[in-house]
């Protein structure tokens, strides 16, 4: 099957890449006195809306929306190829909808608008129990998650059911993808989520049946072994991971889970380096989206670090490699 030609979209992305923040920009941002000067600095770099005063959340949400508006503009056909980026937002919105309905609270602010389905539709379907109106990836899991929370009143169990369905959907997209970078992204997404779940379960001493319910299958990890290691303890996970292709991540996992998240983001950026210069494929567009997400994540970390008066060195340690 011939792949789409992304020449036009890639040319537009090339220019946008020049507007991404570099490592030195981030260090400059970090050296600003307070949040207000940080926001002014970001405005000078083209971030946010200069016509109004924005909160940090509005600024970051606005930048995320800008990214997707730009991507929707440059990719006219075959938009679903990027669904693997959006699907986690759908599952997040499903969680929010179920919890806000069962606990009778207003959760409007917690919905994400970067998914494939309108959050209002998800809320409406869950509220009226009309799950068949939901797309395939949400349809059966919405019913199961709702039943779980109604029967057990256990929010964590409901989260596990939905999170696992999300990981399974991403894994399925990766397996069916023609593009190497999509396969890689989806595999790393699922494997890193499994590692984080296993590490958390080991630290909170969860039993094996709980761990098994939480982990989603992937190609680069044996999840039965990971689950049994997690039930033995954290050291056992480290020992297992030392024998897998994630052995370079072991020291990061030992440090902290946020250090491991940083390792995953840096690892992706390194993999993407080879995709940067493929002008006819979707590779540079995916690379741009990941780079932009990392950029927003880094800025979020700096701004909230400033708000909470964290030490600059602590923030610096968590900053990701920039794509530029």
């Amino acid at each position: 099957m011939p792949q789409n030609d992304y020449t036009y979209a890639v040319a537009r992305v090339r220019f946008k890449e020049t507007q991404l923040l570099s490592d030195s920009d981030l260090y400059q941002l970090l050296s600003q006195r307070d949040v207000d000067t940080c926001i002014r600095f970001l405005h000078d770099k083209g971030w946010g809306d200069n016509s109004k005063i924005e909160t940090v959340d509005e600024l970051l949400k606005g930048e995320d929306n800008k990214t997707w508006k730009f991507i929707d503009e440059i990719i006219q056909e075959d938009k679903e190829i990027l669904d693997f980026f959006k699907i986690p937002s759908d599952f997040h919105n499903l969680k929010v909808a179920i919890k806000s309905i069962t606990r009778d609270i207003d959760a409007e602010d917690m919905f994400l608008y970067s998914g494939t389905v309108d959050p209002k539709l998800i809320y409406d379907c869950v509220n009226k129990r009309e799950y068949e109106r939901l797309p395939e990836h949400l349809y059966s899991i919405a019913d199961e998650a709702m039943k779980t929370i109604l029967q057990t009143s256990d929010g964590q169990l409901c989260d596990i059911v939905i999170d696992k369905a999300c990981l399974n959907s991403i894994s399925e997209i990766g397996k069916n993808a023609d593009n190497e970078i999509i396969k890689l992204y989806c595999e790393l997404f699922v494997a890193s989520a499994d590692i984080k779940i296993a590490a958390r379960c080991a630290k909170t001493k969860k039993d094996i049946s709980f761990i098994n319910r939480s982990l989603a299958p992937c190609d680069t990890l044996n999840i039965d072994r990971l689950a049994s290691c997690a039930s033995f303890g954290f050291d056992s996970i480290i020992e297992y991971l030392s024998q897998t292709e994630y052995k370079s991540a072991v020291s990061a996992i030992e440090t902290s889970l946020s250090a491991f998240e940083k390792w995953c983001d840096d690892y992706l950026i390194d993999i993407l380096a080879s995709q940067k210069w493929e002008p006819f494929t979707i590779g540079p567009i995916i690379a741009y989206i990941i780079a932009r997400n990392n950029e927003i994540k880094a800025v979020r970390m700096i701004l909230f670090g400033k708000i909470n008066a964290l030490d600059d060195d602590i923030i610096k340690k968590r900053l990701r490699k920039m794509y530029v």
Binding site: D5, T7, Y8, A9, A11, R12, R14, F15, K16, P279
Partner: peptide
């Protein structure tokens, strides 16, 4: 082909 890429750059 070059024109498509050029149009992409020019729109930015």
């Amino acid at each position: 082909k070059a024109g498509v890429a050029a149009a992409g750059v020019l729109s930015e």
